[in-house]
């Protein structure tokens, strides 16, 4: 390569960070654009992550240490993308024009808004919280009800905003089952006296060592798993909640009172750049990739690549791997372009 080529990575979560680190190690100029004041994406909210309880901070610190001389722009978003590969020009919210030979979109996901499941009473009942809020409590080592009491009975409701036609999200968010198992263990460690119930439809713990984590939660921590989707919650005058669901394995309706209800909110697509980048979406509203089997980092536009949860729910490790795989795809693309070769991108049939 004669002249150094510049790649712009949009989104500084684990996927974007990993990709930027990898791209600069290839000798490319990299600009990382992050909307928030800090890079790290959702990891900044997590305490310790499954499956091995690595502190989320440690992961962010590691990924940041790999950035080399990547130019990081925080508090910045993209307002326009003009031109075509390999001569894109990106306009940022600060008004800067940044040339790019290739673009990587790693803008991640959003949490499902639990208020939409009205029958669970999130935002109405005092002691109905999301898993995101629980992580904040765990960080402080302070799991309390709104009334300031230590909760004795805690339920985790799986699949909130996922696998649910009623909120228009038919897909499985993939991480929340394992996250629930992890959270249950963490609660039990901080509050050994508590009783914890997971209300699930299917336990989807798919990754390496995840199943072991599930087993540990049963064997060593006595977490109760009840197969039945939460149907409704109602509040008692003292702020505790009564849950109604069916214990489907005994085929009997069940009523359960808990002090704290935790909703395992799923992921929703963050596709705020879809119009700016002119990219199509899949039926799950995440960005569509060029091919589901062999071109998962390619978008439908030449020179624009995708990584991480922007293309569907992933765990951290998968997001990082996906970011690096996107970096490799970008390098391959730029090398072929530089040689003036016809770029062989898988095309849609």
């Amino acid at each position: 390569m004669e002249k150094k080529q510049q790649v712009v990575v949009i989104g500084g979560g684990p996927a974007g960070l990993a990709a930027a680190g990898q791209l600069q190690s290839f000798g490319l100029d990299v600009v990382l654009i992050e909307k928030q004041a800090q890079v790290g994406g959702h990891l900044n909210k997590w305490y310790k992550v499954f499956p091995d309880f690595t502190p989320a901070e440690e992961i962010v610190a590691h990924l940041k240490s790999q950035l080399g001389n990547t130019r990081v722009l925080t508090n910045t978003t993209v307002t326009a993308i003009s031109g075509e590969a390999p001569d894109f020009s990106i306009t940022t919210s600060s008004g800067e024009q940044i040339p790019a030979a290739a673009i990587l979109i790693a803008t991640g996901y959003k949490h499902f808004d639990a208020r939409l499941k009205e029958e669970y009473g999130y935002g109405i009942y005092d002691n109905c919280i999301t898993s995101v809020e629980l992580d904040a409590m765990l960080k402080e080592n302070k799991i309390r009800t709104l009334q300031g009491k230590i909760p004795k009975k805690i339920a985790l409701a799986h699949c909130v905003g996922s696998r649910d036609e009623k909120v228009n999200n038919n897909y499985c968010s993939r991480v929340c089952c394992t996250n629930a198992v992890k959270l249950a263990i963490e609660i039990k460690e901080q509050l050994p006296e508590s009783e914890i119930y997971c209300l699930y439809m299917d336990i989807r713990v798919f990754g390496r060592t995840y199943e072991e984590l599930y087993r540990t939660s049963q064997e060593e921590f006595g977490i109760q798993f009840i197969r039945g989707r939460l149907s409704e919650a109602s509040e008692k005058p003292d702020g505790s909640l009564v849950l109604r669901f069916e214990d489907t394995l005994t085929a009997r309706p069940m009523r359960l009172s808990v002090d704290l209800l935790i909703l395992m909110v799923g992921m929703e697509a963050n596709t705020e750049l879809a119009e700016i980048a002119r990219l199509p979406l899949g039926c799950d509203r995440f960005y569509a990739t060029l091919h589901g089997q062999y071109a998962n980092n390619h978008s439908h536009r030449e020179g624009i690549f995708l990584a991480g949860t922007a293309t569907g729910p992933k765990a951290i490790m998968e997001s990082i791997t996906d970011g690096r795989s996107a970096a490799a795809a970008i390098l391959s693309f730029l090398m072929q372009k530089a040689k003036g070769m016809e770029v062989k991108v898988p095309t849609l049939v």
Binding site: R227, R229, S231, F245, E246, T248, A251, P253, M254
Partner: peptide, 20 residues
């Protein structure tokens, strides 16, 4: 077979088969 229907059902307590 998630049981959401039975869980919220008004009269499930008296039913011998849950709606699910």
């Amino acid at each position: 077979q998630c049981g959401t229907c039975s869980g919220g059902c008004t009269n499930v307590d008296s039913m011998d088969l849950t709606p699910r």
